[in-house]
């Protein structure tokens, strides 16, 4: 085995160990944030694949999350829970008696999202840039409106509640780590290279023999699959879902993570998913009354959002390509970093 691979496996084992320790020592609140960070890693990476690798500016993520969330929720809910939830209109008979474990339900959720993603993408991938963004945004709203109106399938605006809260650190971070590994190997593969060729210059890519439509469709399908998985994880972390959860704001949250981390950077997305999720909670103290010792600032609700926005503006001003740009933290780059340091040390 190559030395690099041993180091890679060692790193993964180390991360798993750290997560296992965190899982057994943290309180419920911190665990919740940790889970949420893992879910946002999955969501951020899936949007990063569509927006960053393939350069398709999609704003439809919340719609695919909704599909994954609803599909998996309806599959895992117990028969009794379904009956008590659907008190306005009874649930459609073919769904009423299905009950399955979380893992297959989540995968089916992802697959349904992928299939619908493909169906939606096929006609609208003819559009480019802003037009594509508007069309995908429209589709995600359409999905939400359909879910609001199909009372016998989704319980409409009343939402679903009483889902077993299956999502825990092994699930959320296990899938996050798998997604990270998948994204790295996808990027190294010929498909990943083709995605990036399309992003840089699609005319040049096409003249080199890359099938534009096929590759764009593939990127969109894989992205939708992981969005569906992320939605399923989120639903089973919350224990309740409703169509309003999947408004444009949800897409915006994920987009924020991708842009902040650097569009096209895997490690950047992972870092910013964790930082954004944790920072939103850590900054919560700003909403309360702050005692600085020499003066007391009365509580102002919303201060947290103000500071968060200022931090965002700072990042956008000083790091126009996001925290990482398109760079990655890899073994190579870390090695170079150390070598440079050693060189500098030797010179002085």
């Amino acid at each position: 085995m190559k030395r690099e691979n041993i180091i890679r496996i060692g790193l993964i084992v180390l991360v798993v160990l750290v997560l296992a320790i965190l899982n057994s020592t943290l309180g419920n609140y911190q665990l919740r944030i940790l889970n949420l960070a893992g879910i946002y890693v999955v969501l951020g990476l899936s949007l990063n694949l569509i927006n960053g690798f393939a350069g398709l500016f999609s704003l439809g993520h919340a719609g695919f999350m909704a599909i994954g969330a609803y599909t998996s929720a309806l599959l895992t809910m117990s028969v009794a829970q379904k009956q008590s939830n659907f008190f306005v209109k009874p649930i459609v008979p073919w769904l009423a008696n299905i009950e399955m474990p979380f893992l297959p339900a989540m995968l089916i959720g992802g697959l349904v999202a992928a299939v619908l993603g493909t169906l939606i993408a096929a006609p609208i991938l003819r559009l480019r840039d802003d037009y594509l963004a508007i069309a995908t945004l429209g589709f995600s709203e359409i999905i939400r409106v359909i879910f609001t109106n199909t009372m016998s399938l989704t319980n409409g605006a009343l939402g679903l509640k009483g889902l077993t809260r299956y999502t825990n650190v092994p699930y959320s971070w296990g899938i996050a780590i798998l997604t990270i590994l998948f994204m790295f190997s996808l990027r190294r593969s010929s498909y990943g290279k083709a995605f990036m060729a399309i992003r840089e210059d699609d005319v040049a890519a096409e003249s080199m023999g890359i099938d534009l439509f096929k590759h764009k469709l593939l990127a969109f399908t894989i992205g939708s699959f992981f969005a569906g998985i992320g939605g399923a994880l989120l639903a089973h972390l919350m224990g309740t879902i409703d169509p309003l959860m999947f408004r444009f704001l949800m897409t915006f949250n994920v987009l924020l993570i991708v842009v902040l981390g650097g569009i096209g950077s895997i490690t950047g997305t992972v870092i910013s998913a964790v930082v954004v999720t944790v920072a939103m909670e850590v900054l919560r103290f700003l909403d309360g009354t702050i005692d600085l010792g020499f003066m007391v600032i009365q509580s102002v609700p919303g201060m947290r959002m103000v500071l968060f926005s200022i931090l965002l503006m700072l990042v956008v001003l000083f790091y126009q390509n996001g925290l990482m740009g398109r760079d990655e933290i890899t073994l190579d780059s870390m090695g170079k970093f150390y070598k440079n340091k050693i060189k500098k040390g030797a010179k002085s």
Partner: peptide
Amino acid sequence: LVIVDNKSDKVEAANAATKLVDQ
């Protein structure tokens, strides 16, 4: 009174409630 903001967002509401209970 410990007042926390849920940002008109379901995910945040769950976070806020967990914070009240746990922290």
